[in-house]
Write a protein that binds this DNA or RNA. Structure first.
Lengths: 342, 342
DNA sequence: CTGTTAGCGCTTTCAT
DNA sequence: ATGAAAGCGCTAACAG
């Protein structure tokens, strides 16, 4: 079934020259006569010759391929970040191979392994929600493969990272609710193992403390980010003797899920309960009422992560020092948190 | 900067055996003593040996990698389809490398080339909106690289394809509008070069004819699917002496964009103008009013496309015959097209 | 300017 | 059961 693809040897034979000469002609090496080069190029075109990058990579110990491992592409956050990353990498002549962990630790490990086996030159990743053991990434690091994390990063890894000021962003979101007059503000948090969950929770706590609000454990409830599971956490809040009048959600998909449930139950937003999300997903401005949220520069995160990776790859490994870039969030106030209307 | 990764030669030397033996031990070849194998495996583990898949691919003329080239991951349609495809390919031991054309013809060509140079074993693709020249895919085919198209397929290529019954789906959507009492039904179509645009347009025409509705050219307007450009096409419709009372849109993102514009202008949906989309994107059930749409089995499309590709790769090239699978759509009636409410 | 040689990491005959 | 040798497609010294 394998019909032979033309190689430089085929070209060399047909032209009666050596394969090195063909190689030189093809790569644009200076030491080659215009004449020979022309003949090679013409024949290559005629045979529809296509270089075998694998062989090249084997020789060069470089594949000019990068890998990206993200939880899931269906989430706008990740597909946008990837788009930003790809922009930067492709401009630099690298191909970015995208893998989804599907929020599964085991798949994440498998993805990382598959990429490493294919000798990719670097990896950019955001952890699956299940990941606590980061041995697979340590491994990558130990092998000297550049690694950059973004969004869901690990505190235990000394690598370059790109994050936003989650804590401040969360603070601003909750402060906004407080200033808007809400009194009993709940937090629907993410899995405790994720740093972003912790940071956003801390931002929430900071705001309450700053404004002398009591901190009540029953108002803080977390869930594992599984589609459809926000409902369970939400119910805990709704079943409270004193129901909250505002909920700050870990991210937009969560807030949107909550909004749907509240609407079905006839609970008015923002009059009965106000809602704030995090990320500014496209859907957030579409839904009714539109969702107040903490916007992140998503595409930029991807771009910066990719740039850090390229810098590390192209730089001197000896003097490389991991760097953490913290991008700025921006509170976007919409109707889900403003009683009188906006 | 390249710190040497352990190879089978390193293992062989350290154990005082030949690299062939190491290879056999590692691949589980029958002709090897349990004893030797055990020693090899242990040392491999200790050195954290990782096979170099590139070298293997070079020898085997097979990379166990597949490529996917899609317009953009931010569109739920494509990220879901890819998810379905990845499910199938990874179960079969293949890694799926995902590339975005960003709806650009040139990027699509570059993606396809990059994948081919990396010796991927097959490609699954959906055309960019700009693509009319399919020479790059013909090329792939000529080289004997299996190719499967889905969704945005080309009529001029003899390859396996996965589509839905776009024409019937569109017919049902428009029939629904007719039966719901709408009299002046417009169609906001996609680029004319895309087969799906043509098919959906034909479904629209079929329905009008079936119910003896006049076909008016001014009610049919197309645009290039660029974000934000639906507005222009919509304006042509709104500026008509007799404004339509219903619009069947080429897809959900378009319908959603239209809905936003109509709402801002104070046009009531569905009372002044009814709206129907195509795809059942997640946002369609979130927006207000919820969007009537023609649902496609998106994940299944990806799965089927991947399966067709694997079948072709693993099957006998001589007796391969391209196959077109047509999956079924399903009309989902929501509030954007039902006057009395639902 | 061009050819020769070696080698990237691995599998696979063919011997032994 | 193991080793030696050839080779996948390409680049990179080293000669000339």
């Amino acid at each position: 079934m394998k019909n032979h693809q033309p190689t430089i040897i085929d070209i060399a034979k047909e032209l009666g020259i050596s394969k090195s000469t063909v190689s030189r002609a093809l790569t644009g090496h200076p030491n080659i006569s215009k004449e020979t080069q022309k003949r090679v190029l013409e024949l290559a075109k005629k045979l529809d010759y296509q270089k075998n990058t694998l062989a090249l990579s084997l020789v060069k110990h470089q594949s000019f391929s990068l890998g990206a491992v993200v939880p899931e592409l269906i989430a706008p956050f990740f597909s946008l970040a990837i788009t930003g990353a790809q922009e930067v990498t492709s401009r630099a002549g690298y191909t970015l191979f995208i893998c989804q962990s599907n929020e599964s630790y085991l798949t994440e490990v498998a993805n990382v392994k598959a990429l490493a086996e294919r000798q990719i030159d670097g990896i950019i990743t955001s952890l699956s929600k299940e990941t606590t053991d980061i041995e697979h990434l340590r491994n990558i690091q130990r092998k000297g493969i550049p690694l950059v994390m973004f969004n869901r990063v690990s505190a235990d890894l000394e690598v370059s990272k790109v994050v936003v000021n989650d804590r401040e962003g969360a603070f601003q979101a909750v402060e906004h609710l407080i200033l808007a007059g809400y009194k009993r503000i709940a937090h629907l948090a993410g899995p405790k193992n994720l740093l972003i969950s912790q940071n956003r929770l801390n931002g929430y706590l900071d705001a309450l403390r700053t404004y002398n609000f009591p901190i009540e454990d029953e108002l803080i409830t977390s869930y594992d980010l599984s589609k459809g599971q926000a409902r369970v956490a939400l119910m805990r809040l709704l079943d409270l003797p004193q129901v909250p009048d505002a909920i700050f959600c870990i991210n937009d998909p969560t807030a949107i899920e909550v909004m749907q449930i509240l609407k079905v139950r006839g609970i008015k937003i923002p009059d009965d309960i106000a809602l704030v999300g995090f990320s500014d997903d496209p859907a957030s401005s579409l839904i009714e009422p539109s969702l107040t949220t903490v916007a992140q520069p998503i595409i930029e995160m991807g771009q910066v992560a990719a740039q850090l990776l390229l810098d590390q790859i192209q730089g001197d490994a000896e003097k490389f020092v991991p760097e953490t870039k913290v991008l700025k969030t921006k509170l976007i106030v919409r109707r889900s948190s403003v009683k009188g209307g906006i």
